[in-house]
Design a protein around this nucleic acid. Structure first.
Length: 477
DNA sequence: TGGGGTTAT
DNA sequence: ATAACCC
């Protein structure tokens, strides 16, 4: 076996783990086919705490939910419409040329048989989305949501446990589930391969469970960090999974045609990089770190340059319950205060139901608007304020009118942003509840409970609310 | 471009 | 409060 003459100069800084002694370990890692291979060996060999991460990505999620709601739609080309956009569509429709975020006009032109359902109310999507996250949390509690249809799960511990259950003679019988990226050969003597293969088996179990319990199909990608797991999950596309072995990391990252395809490099950063003459992943890898730091700031510069090598030490952060609830509506024109008030009342009514079901209480409310303007791609303004405590108490009880005080607050925020004595033209209104706090913990003790028993004894599910019990001493230890 | 979400500054 | 990012 050839020894690798790798020098510890290197460019990106270290991914995770120690910088020391990795060069020594390198002596034994086996043949690297190319300089790409060398880089990968460096990254993964020095890194003794290598993780196993899965990225789970549902297929055309909204369309799937609609097809479950109405099975007649199953074999038809289906699009989900919000305003004049087809935001997503099933694979029947994709075969016929419909794309995500396509104009309804263009979509109908491409595909006259296209069936459209309205998807502006996200309630069922949101509910199904959380069912998926909860199902994944049953495998391992460390689940991070990304939008409604993607989840990351850190499988490192679970893989370790399964590894310990295996007898040494069973190691040579471990198999992959699904595709191996780049058709790379598996080396069963490589513990990193073994761990990722076990990860692929868990990913397959997750997809099976999603289908059996929820009727949903999706893709999965298994790799050593979130970036790579996400990139590899989309390689084989509907309803398939792929595992990335360390030696193919550079091939995966270089398969991207533009830096904007790296998650974490968005519209603004991509424009900025283009202005510097950086267009490909290779451009970004080899660009001067010093200059990049001056242009983008040290934090962003170092992060994205690491990403360009496939390095991503960001942890999977359990999402838990949402940090905020919001409802928005966009429209061609809203130009009077009464009109705005009506829209705000609608948004608020939906939000109050959601907050009620959540059980926690928001302590802050925010109003967001978008003003009409010919240019300015992204112009939203917002005002927020604390929710008065007497209003918070009524939230979720249903038996007191919380609409009236909340609308009053929101209209004050509205007039703070919009001079209603002057003509105005809005194209979006949104109401957001945030700063959510649990009601039954720490801060809320016995005294608070006795003083406001309706908080925890009132039903919010029905048209009216009822006292569920009387307050007696023996109810509380 | 919709109707959501998050974190950093 | 805004601006960036994600879907």
């Amino acid at each position: 076996m050839e020894k690798l003459g790798v020098e510890p100069e290197e460019e990106g800084g270290c991914d995770e783990g120690d910088t020391e002694a990795w060069a020594m370990e390198l002596a034994d890692v086996g043949a690297a086919a190319s300089s790409q291979g060398v880089r990968d060996q460096v990254l993964h060999t020095r890194n003794s705490s290598s993780r196993v991460i899965v990225h789970v990505d549902l297929d055309c999620f909204y369309a799937q939910v609609e097809m479950i709601s109405n099975p007649e739609l199953k074999d038809k080309p289906l699009g989900v419409q919000q305003k004049y956009l087809v935001v997503t569509c099933n694979y029947e429709a994709r075969k016929l040329g419909v794309k995500k975020l396509m104009n309804v006009r263009d979509a109908k032109e491409k595909c006259p048989q296209l069936v459209l359902v309205n998807g502006e109310d996200l309630t069922r999507y949101r509910e199904m989305s959380y069912k998926v996250t909860e199902l994944l949390e049953e495998f391992s509690p460390v689940v991070e949501r990304l939008g409604f249809d993607e989840n990351f799960v850190d499988l490192t511990e679970m893989v370790e446990k399964r590894l310990q259950q295996l007898q040494s003679d069973e190691l040579s019988a471990v198999t992959v589930s699904g595709h191996v990226y780049n058709n790379q050969s598996i080396n069963l003597h490589d513990i990193l391969h073994i761990r990722l293969l076990i990860g692929s088996q868990i990913a397959a179990e997750m997809r099976e469970a999603m289908y059996n319990h929820l009727g949903l199909t999706g893709c999965a990608g298994v790799a050593s960090n979130k970036l790579l797991a996400k990139l590899v999950s989309g390689v084989f596309k509907p309803n398939q999974q792929t595992v990335l072995l360390p030696e193919s990391c550079q091939r995966l990252i270089h398969s991207l045609n533009h830096i904007k395809e790296i998650p974490g490099i968005g519209y603004k950063t991509a424009k900025c990089l283009e202005a510097l003459g950086i267009n490909s992943v290779h451009d970004l890898q080899t660009f001067s770190s010093k200059i990049l730091e001056k242009e983008l700031g040290i934090s962003l510069a170092q992060r994205i340059q690491k990403l360009s090598f496939g390095e991503d030490n960001s942890p999977v952060i359990p999402s838990g319950p949402p940090q905020s609830f919001s409802e928005e509506d966009s429209f061609k024109k809203c130009s009077s205060e009464v009109e705005a008030k009506n829209k705000i009342e609608e948004l608020l009514a939906s939000l109050l139901n959601r907050v009620c079901q959540d059980g926690r209480k928001p302590h802050t409310v925010r109003l967001i608007i978008r003003r009409y303007s010919s240019e300015k791609h992204y112009g939203r303004e917002s005002r927020q304020c604390p929710i008065p405590s007497h209003v918070i108490q009524k939230l979720g009880t249903g038996n007191y009118d919380v609409m009236t005080p909340m609308v009053d607050i929101l209209m004050k925020l509205f007039r703070n942003m919009v001079n209603v004595k002057m003509p105005f033209h809005l194209t979006l209104l949104s109401v957001c509840f945030c700063n959510l706090k649990a009601v039954n913990t720490a801060k809320r003790g016995l005294i608070d409970y006795y003083l406001t028993p309706s908080l925890s004894t009132t039903s919010c599910s029905g048209k009216h609310s009822f006292k569920m019990k009387d307050t007696h001493m023996e109810d509380f230890p």
